[in-house]
């Protein structure tokens, strides 16, 4: 027997296998594609609405609104002024519209990730079996090259915003789920016992004790989720998502160095703004634990 060559499935069998899988998936797409698309229709409408709101409103208003959000979250003049300078520079260098598109996209993706991620995280924390089931799926989502799951997503939804959102959410949701799970599991058992002793129902325990105490960890999850969504912007631009990713993609294809750097820096700038604002907010949530009795 020949030990050098690995005994593999014959080339013909492999091709048949691929054809069979691809064929049945195509049939699935044809049969259910439209239904799936209609399910995501409201999401698309919302994203389009948010995007056009950010783009068509007068820029000083949008700028003020963004800075107001940053200030309410961080309560820090330094972070707010820094954000203002960054946004003004972005506008001055002609990237205002693309930046607004990206912000709309990231906002929607983060929202979807929060709405789906927190309940899954809670379920995971409540049951070891669910945790054992979900964990490998999360590993898969985080390590599978994003181009691979872009294929079926594009086959079902075509090019555009919705497949972009789905691809970004798949990539960005795992830390959201993991950190929600972790945060709830780390809640002090003494406090949980006290909640039980006073006759809390499962729901009361969740809302009064587990979620509030896990909130700082959950905030870290949201922060990670935003960062990872931004990291996916360029990949998403490959399936037709407009925003700061597209000029970067163009720059790569045409070796426009300055264009690439400028748009890249714009992504970095909004990443830093989001990061500082959410982190400062998370810190404020922990205020009660900082003041320690001397």
């Amino acid at each position: 027997m020949d030990w050098v060559e690995f005994p593999s499935l014959g080339r013909r069998d492999l091709r048949d296998l691929r054809l069979a899988v691809d064929g049945s998936f195509k049939e699935f797409t044809r049969a259910y594609g439209e239904t799936l698309e209609s399910i995501f229709e409201p999401l698309k409408t919302f994203l389009v609405w948010l995007e056009s709101l950010l783009i068509t409103s007068p820029w000083p208003l949008v700028l003020l609104a963004l800075l107001a959000i940053v200030f309410v979250m961080s309560r820090s003049v330094k972070i707010t002024v820094g954000s203002m300078i960054a946004l003004l520079l972005i506008g001055y260098f002609g990237m205002w519209e693309d930046t607004m598109r990206t912000i709309a996209m990231v906002a929607v993706c983060t929202l979807v990730a929060i709405v789906c991620g927190i309940p899954i995280g809670i379920l995971m924390a409540r049951s070891d079996r669910v945790q054992a089931l979900v964990n490998p799926v999360l590993d898969l989502m985080q390590t599978m090259p994003s181009f691979v799951y872009l294929i079926p997503v594009v086959m079902i939804f075509g090019l555009g915003k919705v497949p972009g959102v789905i691809a970004v959410v798949i990539y960005a949701i795992p830390p959201m789920i993991r950190l929600t799970n972790l945060g709830i599991r780390l809640v002090d058992t003494d406090v949980l016992e006290a909640a039980d002793a006073f006759g809390s129902s499962a729901w009361q325990k969740l809302t009064n004790v587990q979620l509030p105490l896990a909130l700082p960890t959950i905030m870290a999850g949201i922060n990670q989720c935003i960062m990872m969504s931004l990291a996916m912007v360029v990949v998403a631009s490959m399936i037709g998502v407009k925003g700061l990713g597209q000029p970067v993609l163009q720059a790569i294809n045409n070796q426009y160095f300055t264009m690439g750097v400028m748009n890249g820096l714009a992504i970095v700038a909004i990443a830093i703004i989001f990061d500082r604002a959410t982190q400062a907010y998370g810190k404020r949530l922990q205020k009660h634990s900082e003041v320690v009795h001397g």
């Binding site: 406090v191 009064n208 009660h288």
Partner: peptide, 9 residues
């Protein structure tokens, strides 16, 4: 409780 078990938040 021995360790008070108050809600820190």
């Amino acid at each position: 409780f021995q360790k008070f078990a108050l809600l820190p938040h």
